[in-house]
Design a protein around this nucleic acid. Sequence first.
DNA 1: GCGAGGCACTGACATTTGTCACATCGGTTC
DNA 2: GAACCGATGTGACAAATGTCAGTGCCTCGC
Lengths: 202, 202
Amino acid sequence: MTTRLLLADDQELVRDALRALLELQDEFEVVASVGRGDLVVDAALQTHPDVALLDIEMPGLDGLAVAAVLASQAPDTRVIILTTFGRSGYLRRAMEAGAVGFVVKDAPAEALADAIRRVMNGEHVIDPALAAATLAAGESPLTARERDVLIAARSGASVADIARKLYLSEGTVRNYLSTAMSKTSARNRMEALRIADDRGWL
Amino acid sequence: MTTRLLLADDQELVRDALRALLELQDEFEVVASVGRGDLVVDAALQTHPDVALLDIEMPGLDGLAVAAVLASQAPDTRVIILTTFGRSGYLRRAMEAGAVGFVVKDAPAEALADAIRRVMNGEHVIDPALAAATLAAGESPLTARERDVLIAARSGASVADIARKLYLSEGTVRNYLSTAMSKTSARNRMEALRIADDRGWL
DNA sequence: GCGAGGCACTGACATTTGTCACATCGGTTC
DNA sequence: GAACCGATGTGACAAATGTCAGTGCCTCGC
């Protein structure tokens, strides 16, 4: 009996290549392949895949958000996050979003096939090294608002820009940036951004 | 007659998947597959591939540097840069490094096969949209020192830090940052950094 | 049920950045 | 050799950024 798969990755070449790789084995069949997060749910409802392989970074809707939607709309489809970044924060959020597997693209091809089989078997599959890193990095010390402000600062926005976007006073924005900087031991917002991002806190 | 290929990409899964994709067609044979830039040249000297497909982002040595080395050490191997980022600066530098093709991972699978065939035919292959963007972005307007200062600012260093690192006065650093910001039409150093980086000016 | 502590939020103040208008010292180019 | 350009520097000023000392509002433990 074949396992029916949905692939979601913004890079068409990677998607096509993964399909070729998986379909070398007769047990797998790719029934849907999409390049945008916001197309995944429709595709899943139409094709009823057994497993959805989701990249995190996609236009439209990111893989973690998609995982959460699938969990409620298509509970029979099990979600494996398959992504470039083995950042610990992603792993945590993926699990919260209802994913049952997390595979990094660094892994050998056999690890992916194996993960799909085990997930079909009812197991949860997580890269052990990544799980360890997640425990080591710890919970994010940032509050929700601090994270919001840091994210809004990413593109190089000024305090005034951020304040407008989040409907806050400039003083408040400065304050959040300041506490975020102190929590990351950074000396300015750019450093704070880099550090928080590296640790998966954003 | 088959085309012999070398694959270099830091993500094993992507490498394996690309191999599966390409070997669906009998005309292609993957003779080497490495995950680090500094292993590419040895692999090429041993296996004499017709075409090397190089990702830019790799540990050890980046794809552009590898391309330059291959051009002198293994001139019979044609280089195609196959990368995630269609940033115009990369294209320019890839061409300077002697690459004859540039394919982004957004492209459909057929585009890659087609690119390999055309490169084997002696043609240069460049994504037309990317070529247009590169021409539009133009030469970097930044002077060498402006570039130095921007690069030093990357990690979130303060003016004082940059001044110390480059043995300049703080005023001079401020001046360079200021002119760089004006040349990029940015409103602060972070924006300038992002813009200059996107255009490949760093 | 009340105090401790965490979080969202704010304005005032000090520090850092960014801008501008210069000036000097090589090189290049016409 | 005059005119220009880039690298370097100074000082003064304006604007943005970072710090601090709070205020309210919850929730949790005792």
